[in-house]
């Protein structure tokens, strides 16, 4: 009998815990998805498969509220992600390709500030700011706040991508008579595209998902999907909430998956 190789890495039980971890992470999401397809007025009992709550989301009594909330959520997410991605791409170019400079650490601190400050604190600060400069709370204040906290999420994948691109490509372009601007637009930008796309998608999801800050700065009457869902959940979980949650959940998973596969398209030499 030959003894199998001594596996120095393997530890008993760790595989089991990993599976447990995945079960913990996914079970609640799966349960919500399954129960959103429940043909019952209560969420407690399973009464067979049905799409009725999905239909209810689009044409039920609350459909108008959800439509407006969805419109707000998506338009804000698109504008916020676009603005944050643009600002972040410029900043990443300076941070990664700007050599060493004194304000580098300070700039990085400023960019990652929205990640370090607890969300509720950022929400309070933003509310106080809007209040003291006299901005009326509503769609615009939500948008302004969203762009700010989306910036680090867009920045991180973009700068990571740029760090992964050897600067010899831009040098080769300049060596071949391209100006710096041409080297940026014709060489660097196309190579960074996967990073920019995943940065955009992450910013988009973060904006779409935000509840706490939105809840503080939205003002009366303006709702996004998360604040609308929260309002309904406060009165108890209803089946139509499960349906709308499942749709939002599926949408996020879809975007993250796209982002994952886009960033995987690596520039192989």
């Amino acid at each position: 009998m030959r003894r199998s190789n001594y596996d120095v890495k393997g530890l008993p039980g760790f595989f089991g815990i990993t599976i447990l971890c995945l079960v913990i992470l996914y079970a609640p999401l799966l349960v919500v998805t399954v129960y959103s397809l429940n043909d019952s007025n209560s969420i407690t009992n399973w009464e067979g498969f049905s799409f009725r709550w999905y239909v209810d989301v689009f044409s039920g009594p609350e459909s108008q509220k959800f439509k407006i909330a969805a419109w707000n959520s998506f338009t804000i997410a698109i504008i916020a992600a676009t603005a944050a991605t643009t600002i972040s791409t410029l900043a990443a170019t300076a941070m990664v390709r700007g050599g060493k400079f004194k304000l580098r650490t300070v700039s990085f601190g400023l960019i990652s500030l929205p990640l370090m400050v607890p969300e509720i604190v950022l929400a309070v600060a933003t509310l106080i700011f809007f209040n003291s400069v006299g901005f009326t709370r509503g769609y615009m204040t939500i948008l302004i706040a969203h762009i700010a906290f989306c910036i680090p999420f867009a920045y991180l994948p973009i700068s990571a991508r740029m760090q992964g691109i050897d600067d010899s490509y831009e040098q080769a372009a300049q060596d071949l008579y391209a100006t710096k601007r041409q080297a940026f637009t014709r060489i660097l930008l196309p190579m960074m595209l996967p990073g920019i796309i995943s940065g955009y998608l992450l910013a988009f999801i973060v904006s779409l998902d935000d509840f706490i800050i939105t809840n503080f700065v939205k003002g009366a009457g303006v709702e996004t999907l998360p604040t609308a869902i929260f309002g309904s959940v406060k009165q108890g979980i209803k089946p139509n909430i499960m349906a709308i949650s499942t749709m939002l959940l599926g949408f996020s998973v879809l975007l993250v998956t796209i982002s994952y596969f886009v960033s995987k398209t690596d520039n192989k030499k």
Partner: peptide, 9 residues
């Protein structure tokens, strides 16, 4: 990446 609110719900 799934909405924190939805996960908490």
């Amino acid at each position: 990446w799934v909405n924190l609110l939805i996960r908490t719900v």
